[in-house]
Design a protein around this nucleic acid. Structure first.
Length: 358
DNA sequence: AAACCGGGGCC
DNA sequence: GGCCCAGGTTT
């Protein structure tokens, strides 16, 4: 089978390939441009964008000098807009660092913004005939079905396995032709849903086709879609006369709710007894050895975000003496009457409302 | 609502 | 060098 695969595939491709503008060239600029535009984009949608860019910016030099405003305008509707930003950065890199010539080495190409493992292999093989397999979603699908490979494709070892297999299959064929052929076959014939297996050139060999199990390939490891996080918040209250003040914290890290305010807390991977969170370094460094009383402990309903489930607990602590706030930790002491003025996540807002604090 | 799918970025 | 995430659009 391995012996036959390439010749059947390439033969099919020569007969059935679509004639697309970036197929009539070995100009690395145009190949790169088409690959960036077509990432996460269907050909019928991306084609008109490609043609517009090719006409307006026929060389990498012209693109390197383009105004961002114009590029973004031309990109409008394509989505994934940082591709457009990376496109401009990369064009400048090619001009300034590589004198306007794309490197042929895939590893070198990877240093360029927006070019990862797939795109580097595509440029190297399609423009320079470097014998390196491209592995995109089409390749995973075609090879997993035909060879009955159940290794999950969204794992490092899975990617490697498909890369090695495709590399073996492509030897003896021009890298540019073989790589385009396998992707084109996946796009036109071995489609994600309802492929026409009865009329497939590989019907006699295809593992999944024979078992009528194309829907089972490629295999993906179900990745934990939503992450569970357990937050133990310390609501520190101090009373001076009749006036209550609370410690808030501006969220600084690259995380959810960036630049909103919440309270000091400790996070755990698993649920714990809320009282045990008072043993955390975060809590100890906050209150030092100060005396405190626990006023209340509450748990909020699970708070749902797109990729996270927040299980929040609130420990309301009252201290007589003010702790010394470490300003570098973005802590601040806020009068109760001012709490309402701080932007907080909905989770925090609900809690403060439940506690009649705002 | 979930699938798609390459790159980025964090460890 | 490995793992997970976010990005918009389509199904």
């Amino acid at each position: 089978m391995s012996v036959n695969f390439g010749s059947k595939l390439v033969g099919w491709y020569e007969q059935n390939k679509r004639h697309l503008p970036w197929r009539n060239t070995i100009n690395p600029y145009k190949i790169w441009l088409s690959e960036i535009i077509l990432q996460q984009t269907r050909i019928d949608q991306g084609l008109k964008y490609y043609l517009a860019f090719e006409e307006r910016f026929p060389t990498v030099f012209s693109l390197a000098e383009a105004s961002p405003k114009e590029v973004f305008k031309m990109w409008q509707g394509l989505g994934y807009y940082n591709r457009a930003e990376n496109l401009m950065i990369a064009a400048k890199t090619i001009v300034e660092k590589y004198d306007g010539r794309f490197p042929e080495d895939p590893a070198e190409l990877m240093n360029i913004k927006g070019i990862g493992s797939y795109t580097s292999a595509a440029i190297a093989s399609l423009a320079f005939n470097v014998p390196i397999p491209v592995v995109d979603g089409n390749v995973f699908r075609v090879l997993s079905r035909i060879f009955g490979i159940s290794t999950p494709i969204n794992t490092t070892y899975g990617k490697k396995e498909f890369e090695i297999l495709s590399g073996k299959l492509m030897s003896n064929y021009p890298p540019s032709v073989f790589n385009q052929a396998i992707m084109e076959f996946g796009a036109l014939y071995c489609k994600p849903a309802n492929p026409d297996c009865q009329h497939c050139i590989f019907i006699d060999e295809c593992h999944a086709g024979k078992l009528n199990s194309v829907g089972d390939f490629p295999v993906k490891k179900p990745k934990a879609k939503v992450r569970n996080r357990h937050f133990y918040y310390f609501l520190i209250e101090t009373k001076i006369g009749g006036l209550s003040q609370f410690i808030l914290k501006r969220r600084q890290e690259k995380d959810i709710w960036k630049n909103l305010y919440d309270m000091p807390m400790s996070e755990y991977e698993k649920a714990i007894d809320p009282v045990a969170s008072l043993e955390s370094d975060n809590f100890k460094s906050l209150l030092g050895g100060l005396e405190y009383q626990i006023n209340s402990i509450n748990s909020s309903p699970t708070h749902l975000l797109t990729h996270q489930r927040i299980h929040a607990h609130f420990i309301h602590i009252i201290v007589d003496n003010l702790p010394i706030l470490q300003t570098e930790k973005y802590l601040l002491l806020v009068d109760q009457s001012q709490l309402i003025n701080y932007p907080v996540p909905r989770l925090i807002e609900r809690y403060l409302q439940d506690q009649k604090l705002i």
